[in-house]
């Protein structure tokens, strides 16, 4: 990751599959991507799983308000706002 890498937070509330596909795409330029699932538990389709595997490979941080979201670190909705202040861009989906 270069010195000019940006920190980008993607907030997922709906359209999970597209939000995750976009998150993965955002890693292409070497930026540090974190995903915050603030909505329903992630629906695991093949496409979603492939994108989550890719996000892991690209060392993205995955957070979710749902304990059941495997592979995501559990975070409370109250913890998210302060965390968002660390990011250059906040992209809500």
């Amino acid at each position: 990751m270069g010195d000019d890498a940006k920190k980008i937070a993607v907030i997922v509330t709906d359209r999970q599959s597209e939000a995750l596909r976009m998150s993965l795409g955002l890693t292409i330029e070497g930026d540090a991507i974190s995903v915050f699932n603030c909505g329903a538990p992630i629906e695991r389709t093949d496409e979603v799983n492939t994108n989550i595997d890719g996000l892991d490979m690209m060392e993205c941080q995955l957070f979710s308000v749902n304990e059941v979201d495997e592979g995501f670190a559990t975070i409370t909705m109250q913890e998210i706002p302060a965390k968002l202040l660390e990011y250059d861009h906040i992209v809500s989906y």
Partner: peptide, 15 residues
């Protein structure tokens, strides 16, 4: 929903 929580917290955090 999410936006309200984040905005209120940012205000409470003194931003």
């Amino acid at each position: 929903g999410t936006a309200d929580v984040v905005i209120e917290d940012h205000q409470n955090l003194g931003q």
